[in-house]
Design a protein around this nucleic acid. Structure first.
Lengths: 196, 196
DNA sequence: ACAGCCATGTAACTTGTTACATGATTTT
DNA sequence: AAAATCATGTAACAAGTTACATGGCTGT
């Protein structure tokens, strides 16, 4: 919901046309994650469908301006006033992967963790370097850039710490004790007497 | 790609039927994130479409077994051997939201951060409590459960730390200096002389 | 008999994302 | 004249998610 809500929040500042939204989004959230232009128009159509924005007038240059609706403004206010829900639904791919690796027989969980740790540590180092090398990109908010850069650094640090922790846990529990084979003899209720 | 790859990795251990896959997934990745049963069949169809699994035989109980293909096994091996890519594409909703809040005129970024911090800190406390209260759920791998619980705790800690950091940054920069109004007078090249 | 679980499946929908078509204007 | 950029849009797809339909079996 990130792109959708972001565009809506920008439109809450005043009418914009598609390409302008892309520029506004970019200079507020950094040159990282370049947003495909097509997605802007896509998202605008969906926001219009949901009654949160309305297609406005076209200026002398041919720019199609979009306006936020009262319902859209309400949504922006609600978004900014409420915290981002983290727990629900958000399946962390790395965590799930390691949990599987730790419980699947025949998988070398320690090696999976080690591979990931090397990659994550390298990425963390690169992020810190990139952070040191000031972004000489034009037209980007330095505060926003800094906040975003710190966000990825903080979460990368946590990832590496967790990987170290996971390595310790896995080392303490031999594969034999943590691996679960497929449950072959399960209750098997329901639906008997079918095919050949 | 989390669900898709997970099911494939489980199938690499041997043929399973749909409901069984759900049980295997659940006891390896914890009772959290309950996986809707329908999604299993959905994902299996897509994996079949991609040639990674094949519809196998039906046993005496009517269970439809699915088998991994050589291509599927290769994919599992490649998945386990390569690190999870974190940087690319992964837009962090909270980070983007705060970057926007910090740069949009009229938005009280400090208040947004404070609201989030309270929610995140409360969640962190709840997670630690839940972690202390041992999961007496049946049939779930304790090591996997522990790893997953730690993963969310570690990342929640990082989130709170980052929020504190962000609060400091924002406090140091008054709204006037960090807010960017919509760029009204932009280059405006291309596409003139159109509508009324 | 009836509730509830086991089990398979289908249909619809969401957000994100990319590739492509089209055309005008500015710059070189 | 050609290349790059501005600008709008369309079409298609991926992955996740939910709601629903259908049945059969088990336990009360």
């Amino acid at each position: 919901m990130s792109v959708r809500q972001s565009l809506l929040a920008i439109l809450d500042q005043g009418p914009c046309y598609g390409y302008q939204l892309r520029a506004e989004f970019a200079r507020r959230t950094g040159a990282a994650w370049p947003l495909n232009v097509g997605q802007i128009y896509n998202t605008l159509d969906r926001l219009e469908r949901d009654g949160l924005v309305a297609r406005g007038e076209t200026d002398a240059h041919g720019h199609v301006f979009w306006t936020i609706t009262p319902a859209g403004s309400r949504e922006v206010a609600a978004w900014l006033a409420s915290p981002v829900e983290r727990a629900a639904g958000t399946r962390d791919e790395l965590a799930v992967k390691l949990a599987l690796a730790a419980t699947l027989p025949g998988v070398d969980a320690a090696r999976v963790i080690d591979t990931q740790r090397q990659a994550s540590a390298a990425r963390l180092a690169a992020l810190r370097n990139a952070r040191a090398a000031a972004a000489d990109e034009v037209e980007v908010s330095p505060i926003a850039q800094s906040l975003l850069a710190d966000a990825v650094v903080f979460s990368a640090e946590a990832e590496v710490r967790w990987l170290d922790h996971a390595a310790t846990i896995v080392a303490q529990h031999p594969a034999a004790s943590r691996s679960l084979p497929l449950a072959t003899e399960r209750p098997r209720r329901g639906r008997p007497t079918a095919a050949a």
